[in-house]
Computed example of a mutant assay.
Amino acid sequence: MPGLGATQTFSSDDLIFLSDEQLRQGIEAMFFAYRGFTADPDRILAELDYGRAHHRAIHFINRAPGTTVTNLLAILGVTKQSLNRVLRRLISDGLVESRVGTLDKRERHLHLTEAGCELEGRLSDAQRARLRAAFRDAGPEAVAGFRQVLEAMMDPDMRRAYAKLREGRV
């Protein structure tokens, strides 16, 4: 069976029996695709001396304005110490605002400031442009298959969190 070429098609029976070499090629394609997907935002972040952790926090705060620190910890799967370091910087730089909860004063609800929204827009615009071009080139069936593969690779807890996010129930 040949490698995972761009023009090659597989039946469902073929996919069950992918060779280790074909799987290795898939792994490598994911690594290189991720590098491409993060390249444009990384350049923007580097100008501000931020990293991908800052990008992820900004992205998910934007997706769920008012999310709690506890919820963001669960989504990102990072330690409290790591997230606090990122949030302190984003707050001190005026990109994120932390508000005390109205029902539970121990909760901290996170919101992007106007500057935070502008940065999030620049970062997301770069990634949307890359995805839009790739999806356009690949076609609707490939896009549906790609999403199906990504969801199948998620652990069950992550799949549930992703479903909640998609449904706006964060």
Rank of each mutant, 00 (worst) to 15 (best):
P2G: 11
G3K: 02
G3Q: 05
G3N: 07
G3D: 10
L4S: 08
G5C: 07
A6M: 03
S11H: 06
S11A: 09
S11P: 11
S12V: 11
D13Q: 09
F17R: 13
L18H: 01
L23G: 04
L23H: 07
R24A: 08
Q25S: 05
G26R: 00
I27V: 13
M30L: 13
F31K: 09
F32K: 07
A33L: 11
G36A: 09
F37R: 10
A39D: 05
D42Y: 01
I44C: 02
I44V: 09
I44D: 00
L45H: 01
A46M: 03
E47A: 09
L48Y: 03
D49P: 00
Y50S: 02
H55T: 08
H55D: 10
I58V: 09
I58W: 00
H59Y: 09
F60L: 02
R63Q: 08
G66L: 03
T67I: 15
T67P: 07
T68E: 03
V69L: 06
T70L: 06
V78F: 01
K80I: 08
Q81L: 07
Q81D: 07
Q81Y: 04
S82W: 02
S82A: 14
L83M: 05
L83F: 05
N84T: 10
R85V: 14
L87T: 00
R88T: 15
R89H: 05
R89T: 12
R89A: 06
S92I: 00
D93A: 09
L95A: 02
V96H: 01
V96L: 02
E97G: 01
S98K: 03
V100S: 15
V100I: 15
T102H: 04
D104V: 13
K105D: 13
E107G: 11
H109P: 13
H111L: 14
H111E: 08
H111P: 12
L112Y: 10
L112K: 08
L112S: 13
C117I: 13
E118I: 09
L119M: 06
E120R: 05
E120D: 15
L123T: 07
S124F: 11
S124N: 13
A126S: 15
A133W: 06
F135L: 11
D137I: 13
D137W: 10
A138Y: 08
A138K: 08
P140S: 12
V143L: 14
F146D: 05
Q148Y: 11
L150D: 00
A152K: 10
D155F: 14
P156T: 12
D157I: 14
M158Q: 11
M158G: 14
Y162S: 14
Y162H: 12
A163K: 10
A163C: 09
A163E: 15
V170D: 10
